[in-house]
Amino acid sequence: MPEDPIRVCLLTADETLPAWAAAAVEELVAETAAEVTLVVEDATTTERSAGDAARRLVELREWGVVAAGIELFGDELPAERSVPIRSIEGVADADWVTCEPDTVDGWKHRLPERAVDRMADADVAVRFGFGFLVGDALTAPEEGVLSFHHGDFREYRGQPMGFWEYVHGRDEAGVTLQRINETLDGGEVVTSRRVDVADAATWGEVRQRLFDASEGMLADGVRRLAREDVEPETLAADELGDLYTHPRGRPVLTYLGKTARGVLLG
């Protein structure tokens, strides 16, 4: 990767980024030789019908009710506030491409050739959208595509972020910046951090701390890739932690009880 400048492509879900991601990009531009030269935006428009929403609620069972309540009545975390991408320092002059990815195997996304061709002009891409990527987009930039995982691959994979660490009463949680490939959580660890969550009273506090810890990791990761003496770490399959998904049954009750105690004591 050239040291001056480092051409960065952002892969985004729309014309905004959550505040934590916007802060990470601003720090990247401010503290390294990086320049955001391209934004590739997902132009897919999906509208879920009332029937789809009802079926999804049934699939999630008791967690669907809890998640709906959080969405309707919970406070938005500062880190999740939407920030217009064009307002981010260092991004206003970037070229902009919109595209709709092709769906592969029912859930993976492959970017169209015209987007991949533009990405080849970048040194590295950062994924903030498009879901699980496959295909030539992953290798079009010289240094590949970076993606955040708010968890430690060695312990917790899957979703929801930070939920299981909170329910299990862990003292720490992790954040990982990974160079992704076509395998689930099988990419290379560029940089990672441990985050103290021992005294976090609510799941929201856990998530906020993980987002806060993410902000400086993008600049650190790009600096590491620029150094010839630093190699990203590849984890073997037996080093990966359990894969979690949306909770059901007892974990939901544990979450509700712990949240109630956290709110009352907080």
Rank of each mutant, 00 (worst) to 15 (best):
E26G: 12
V39T: 09
L243R: 10
A260L: 12
D75N: 11
D42M: 06
H109V: 05
D52S: 15
V263W: 01
F163A: 02
K258Y: 00
D4V: 13
W164F: 09
R118F: 06
G151V: 05
V25K: 07
D123T: 10
T44F: 10
V58W: 04
E143D: 15
F148P: 06
A226V: 07
V36F: 01
S192G: 08
G51V: 11
F163Y: 10
T46P: 00
T245S: 10
G262L: 01
V97P: 03
V134Q: 06
V263R: 11
L225T: 04
E27Y: 02
E172C: 09
D171L: 10
W96Y: 12
A33H: 03
V29A: 08
L11P: 00
D14T: 05
V58I: 15
V252P: 05
L10N: 03
D171Q: 12
T139M: 05
F148I: 10
V206L: 04
E182S: 15
A21L: 03
G187A: 13
R118E: 14
E3D: 14
E71G: 12
G131M: 11
V25W: 02
I180K: 04
A54T: 06
A200K: 04
R179V: 06
D93F: 05
L146I: 10
L177A: 03
V230D: 12
T176K: 07
E80V: 09
R207C: 10
V58S: 08
A13H: 04
L77I: 05
A67P: 01
V39Q: 02
P84T: 08
L60S: 01
S82L: 11
V124G: 07
L264G: 13
G144W: 03
P2Y: 04
Q159P: 00
R261A: 15
T254H: 04
F132A: 14
D42I: 03
V167E: 02
F153C: 07
T191S: 12
V116M: 12
